[in-house]
Amino acid sequence: MTSEEVGTYVESLPLVKRKGTSSRPAWYVHDRLIVRLHDPNTLVIRVPLNKRESLIESHPETFGVPPRMEAHHKVEAYLDRAEPGAVQTAIDLAWQMQRR
């Protein structure tokens, strides 16, 4: 999965706005973060804590939580080995959480 594919998918969701820079784009709904590109290969996706573990268990090659994010509603997705459907699911969870 590429960052361009991520952008195309996120921008297809209602009310999503792109912010950030060209090298570190981020997508928001109601000024609440959904996902941002941390580096060329890593996304940071905001997800509900009660869904995060199941994402990681179901797709350990796609997602991880570094120590700095353990207390936050976030997960990293590694684009070079990400399953596109899993990334889209995480983005959908973030969008649903943030659009309220």
Results as ranks from 00 to 15, higher is better:
3 S>P: 07
38 H>G: 03
41 N>K: 12
91 I>R: 05
6 V>I: 15
3 S>K: 15
44 V>W: 06
97 M>D: 11
59 H>G: 05
28 Y>A: 03
100 R>M: 00
72 H>Y: 14
21 T>L: 08
63 F>I: 08
1 M>N: 07
87 V>E: 11
61 E>T: 12
82 A>F: 06
61 E>G: 15
26 A>V: 01
85 G>Y: 09
30 H>W: 11
6 V>G: 09
50 N>F: 09
20 G>S: 07
96 Q>V: 03
77 A>E: 06
100 R>I: 00
13 L>G: 08
27 W>F: 12
76 E>W: 13
25 P>S: 08
74 K>S: 12
95 W>C: 00
89 T>A: 04
44 V>G: 06
75 V>W: 00
89 T>P: 00
32 R>C: 01
3 S>M: 07
78 Y>M: 09
78 Y>C: 02
48 P>K: 12
61 E>R: 14
88 Q>M: 14
84 P>F: 13
31 D>V: 05
52 R>F: 02
39 D>R: 04
54 S>I: 04
85 G>D: 15
17 K>V: 15
87 V>A: 10
90 A>E: 09
86 A>H: 01
61 E>A: 10
97 M>V: 03
74 K>I: 10
6 V>Y: 10
26 A>L: 14
22 S>P: 02
22 S>N: 14
52 R>Q: 07
54 S>C: 02
95 W>G: 00
64 G>A: 15
59 H>F: 15
2 T>I: 07
94 A>Y: 03
98 Q>K: 05
93 L>A: 02
44 V>H: 08
43 L>F: 06
61 E>D: 15
63 F>V: 05
95 W>Y: 11
63 F>C: 10
77 A>L: 08
40 P>W: 11
72 H>T: 01
4 E>T: 13
38 H>K: 12
52 R>P: 01
75 V>I: 13
99 R>N: 10
96 Q>P: 00
27 W>Q: 04
91 I>T: 11
55 L>Y: 08
31 D>N: 15
61 E>P: 01
83 E>Q: 12
36 R>P: 01
15 L>D: 14
42 T>I: 14
27 W>V: 02
18 R>M: 03
7 G>Q: 12
63 F>H: 10
76 E>H: 13
89 T>L: 13
73 H>P: 03
81 R>V: 07
89 T>E: 07
28 Y>L: 13
30 H>L: 10
23 S>P: 00
10 V>M: 06
82 A>R: 04
65 V>T: 12
80 D>V: 02
51 K>C: 07
32 R>W: 02
76 E>D: 01
19 K>P: 00
46 R>W: 01
24 R>F: 03
61 E>Q: 14
25 P>T: 08
73 H>M: 06
81 R>W: 07
19 K>F: 02
90 A>I: 01
16 V>G: 01
81 R>F: 04
32 R>Q: 13
